[in-house]
């Protein structure tokens, strides 16, 4: 189910003198199974965009199309949207409220029409994807878990619905390096399984390593868009953008300034390491 936006605009408090035009005329198409990153400074419209994609806000102008159908149309069956698009907000761990982990994860399936056995099987599977041992965790109180565990339980609650399109808002903020790595590995696995991933993040290194395509928002418009590598390679010519280069890219530029030219297109850590090994030889051939 591709998701498309056409000439999408959103204004907060349109009637007020303090109205804020958060998005202005966005066009974007996200195909099935893509992994798309959305970057941009605070206030650039990232959160507004994903809330529109999930149908939580109604466009001021323009349309959001899911599988070709306008999700704001009067006759649109919004239960299709709810089943298809899952959204994980910032700090999802603050949204846990049930008495046990299993009940919390099952909450989104309440009106799904699934029977008890099916619900339990979905909950078990979602918790296992998030790295839990179902038998150990399902009866615990979610409030007694650590911050990182809570976040994984909250995400399991979204996964239980088995959405085809998953939207994450700053999912790695506040996670330590190990937590960040294992979260991104899980996401990569979901992506390999065919789920479309849309991820808002400030973390340049994470986006450069994992996404296929990037959208950079600035003042409510798309400032840059394309394959991840291409977008990163264009960043140096767009120095008004608040988007940082990845660490590896920054080092490649600093080396170039000192007269050491490495091949074009160094974005990730492995790109840089490979190029340095090739350049500096070290007596051994890289395998």
């Amino acid at each position: 189910m591709p998701i498309e936006v056409e000439n999408l605009s959103y204004t907060y408090m349109p009637e007020s003198t303090q109205s804020v035009a958060a998005l202005q005329g966005i066009n974007l198409r996200i195909a099935d199974g893509e992994f798309v990153g959305i970057m941009g400074r605070t206030g650039s419209g990232k959160s507004t965009l994903i809330q529109l994609l999930a149908g939580l806000l109604t466009p001021t102008r323009g349309r959001v199309l899911l599988d070709g159908r306008d999700i704001a149309a009067k006759d649109y069956d919004r239960s299709i949207l709810r089943r298809t698009v899952g959204i994980v907000f910032q700090y999802p761990e603050y949204q846990l409220f049930e008495t046990t982990v299993a009940k919390d994860v099952a909450f989104g399936l309440k009106h799904s029409g699934l029977n008890h056995v099916e619900v339990t099987s979905r909950v078990r599977k979602a918790l296992e994807i998030m790295g839990f041992d179902y038998d150990k965790i399902h009866n615990q109180s979610p409030l007694a878990l650590s911050g990182g565990e809570k976040r994984r339980v909250a995400i399991a609650g979204v996964l239980a619905v088995q959405p085809k399109i998953l939207i994450f808002d700053e999912p790695v903020a506040g996670l330590d390096p190990q937590g960040r790595y294992s979260f991104m590995q899980l996401t990569a696995r979901l992506h390999q399984g065919g789920t479309t991933i849309i991820m808002v993040s400030h973390n340049t290194d994470v986006l450069s390593e994992y996404t296929e395509r990037l959208v950079v928002l600035e003042h409510g418009q798309i400032a840059l868009e394309g394959l991840t590598k291409d977008v990163f390679m264009q960043l140096p010519t767009h120095d008004h953008l608040p988007v940082a280069m990845s660490t590896a890219q920054e080092i490649a530029y600093m080396l170039a300034a000192r007269g050491m030219n490495l091949p074009q297109g160094i974005i990730t850590y492995d790109d840089l390491l490979f190029a340095l090994k090739a350049k500096l030889g070290g007596g051994e051939e890289a395998p």
């Binding site: 600093m254 050491m260 390491l273 340095l276 500096l280 070290g282 007596g283 890289a286």
Partner: peptide
């Protein structure tokens, strides 16, 4: 990390750099 990964590949820098500036310096 780069210092250690390069060392493993037989490329030894004079010292282990802490910042990107130091790393660039050591490479040069």
């Amino acid at each position: 990390r780069l210092y250690h990964d390069l060392k493993e590949a037989g490329i030894e820098l004079a010292y282990c750099p802490l910042t990107t500036e130091e790393f660039v310096d050591a490479i040069c």
